[in-house]
Nucleic acid binder design. Structure first.
Lengths: 94, 94
DNA sequence: GGTATATTTGACAATGTTGTCTAAACTAAT
DNA sequence: ATTAGTTTAGACAACATTGTCAAATATACC
């Protein structure tokens, strides 16, 4: 996902704990430049990065994943007439 | 979305009505080769194609969109531990 | 100001993805 | 078997996206 809002959220988490990009980037095995762009919404944040993020930012993985998926869905399908029905249908199928 | 299952579903709809790819492709303004690959899951079906598809296949747009979104979500997030919670949270936020 | 650290920017090569074209393969009917 | 129509496969150029590097900018602290 390339969502500036979620990136900003990650940045807030990081800054509140005084952790530099350098340290997060190291944990995710990416360049600080890439992390900067992720926080700015210019590069995608991969689903597979959430576990490492939760660890290095010391936040609950469950909450982070829920927030990520939820925002991804809204980001992708925002404005679609029957999104709500689609979500209900999806839930029923699980 | 590049989902072979949804492509197969579209193909079934089309064949049940005896409509050739040529006609559907024409309505979507794409090559039959591209449509073939969409039905086989080798090329993405864009959200923006659903309206034209519903029309040319003479199916309910609402149902088609609901099915498309639902399968997209499962396709993208299948296996994620907290998908169900994420869907519930998303619904609450709407 | 000066220095160290942090962050961002722009350029770039590498890679991935797209739709179309042409030709091949398949199907159905006669 | 031939024909006409349909579908698929492979190759390809055009385009988009990616992560990194190096340089530029910003920030904090003395």
């Amino acid at each position: 996902m390339k969502n500036a809002d979620f990136g900003q959220y990650l940045r807030t988490l990081r800054e509140d704990k005084g952790i530099p990009q350098r340290k997060v980037a190291q944990r995710l095995d990416i360049d600080t430049s890439t992390l900067s762009k992720i926080e700015l919404g210019e590069r995608p944040l991969l689903l597979s990065m959430l576990a490492g993020l939760a660890e290095v930012l010391d936040v609950d993985f469950k909450e982070l994943q829920i927030k990520y998926i939820s925002e991804s869905i809204l980001f992708t399908f925002e404005g679609q007439l029957y999104l709500k029905e689609a979500l209900k249908k999806t839930l029923k199928s699980m």
